[in-house]
Design a protein around this nucleic acid. Structure first.
Length: 262
DNA sequence: TTCCATGTTCCGCA
DNA sequence: TTGCGGAACATGGA
């Protein structure tokens, strides 16, 4: 589920279901995900309305009338579900928000690797957690991109996934971006030519934005993308060879050794 | 039964 | 200082 495009779809889901609704109660069904006492969370939400929802990388900030933000991170298995009745409450619901109209927003998570927190300001929260700029932010131009990656001695895949450099890219989309930019996942990112780095910059934004256009639904992704072929031994969609699988900084990377070079 | 998984964080080491 | 591998977290699926 939850890399930048998936979280953007969840942001829109909140916008379409929950914004403008008054919060009757916030029921914490499992405290493991909380980074703040449940009482703080409830005090900040109950009786208030959700005013707007913004996203930074993989984080969602849902603003309440009171001025505080409900902060949501979805880990690997987090999701949201707007339901009409408690009988429809999904399995693995960890927080259930009840609205004045009698409907509910459920935050679900199987593995509970996400987080639920409270913030007074988005900028402050982002700074405190040392997050880099959002990967598709307009303010992120090539100069900034080069500044971030030009002096990193890391491999390209780990660098793209480093939330302190850029916020929003995870394991799946880093593979797609590097495939489309034709860069080997273990290439040293500070050794890329200016031309390759510029191409990487373009592909980073392009892949993430196109994924959003497909509702982050991988079943809709073009056959020319790597993601539908993200299996070892499958034919590369560009017809140049077979998809290979290696470990890069502990994560599984899928790539085409013929297309993606150093 | 064992391994693996879309994420983050912490530790020890190079 | 920076980066990496491994482990931990909790759970389900192949």
């Amino acid at each position: 589920m939850p890399e930048l495009p998936d979280v953007e779809i969840l942001r829109r889901y909140i916008e379409n279901t929950s914004i403008g609704q008054k919060i009757t109660s916030a029921c914490i069904e499992n405290t493991r995900l909380l980074r703040t006492p449940a009482s703080n969370l409830q005090a900040a939400m109950e009786g208030k309305s959700f005013a707007e929802c913004t996203r930074h990388g993989k984080l969602l900030f849902v603003k309440t009338e009171g001025g505080s933000y409900l902060v949501l991170h979805f880990g690997m298995t987090g999701n949201l579900k707007y339901i009409d009745r408690t009988e429809e409450k999904p399995t693995y619901t960890r927080m259930l928000i009840k609205f004045g109209n009698g409907h509910f927003l459920a935050y679900t998570s199987i593995r509970m690797l996400g987080l639920i927190d409270l913030a007074e300001s988005v900028d402050e929260y982002v700074q405190k957690h040392h997050l880099g700029p959002d990967a598709i932010a307009k303010e992120l131009d090539f100069d900034r991109f080069k500044e971030i990656f030009g002096r990193s001695r890391s491999n390209a895949k780990s660098a793209l996934m480093d939330q302190k450099k850029l916020a929003g890219i995870g394991n799946i989309y880093s593979d797609e971006i590097l495939f489309q930019a034709e860069i080997h996942p273990t290439a040293k990112i500070d050794e890329l030519s200016d031309e390759k780095l510029r191409n990487l910059f373009r592909k980073t934004k392009q892949v993430l934005k196109e994924a959003i256009d497909y509702d982050a639904d991988s079943r809709e992704f073009p056959e020319s993308w790597l993601i539908p072929h993200r299996t070892k031994g499958e034919d590369c969609p560009k017809g140049n060879g077979k998809i290979d699988r290696i470990k890069v900084s502990g994560r599984t990377a899928y790539f085409c050794p013929a297309c993606q070079r150093f």
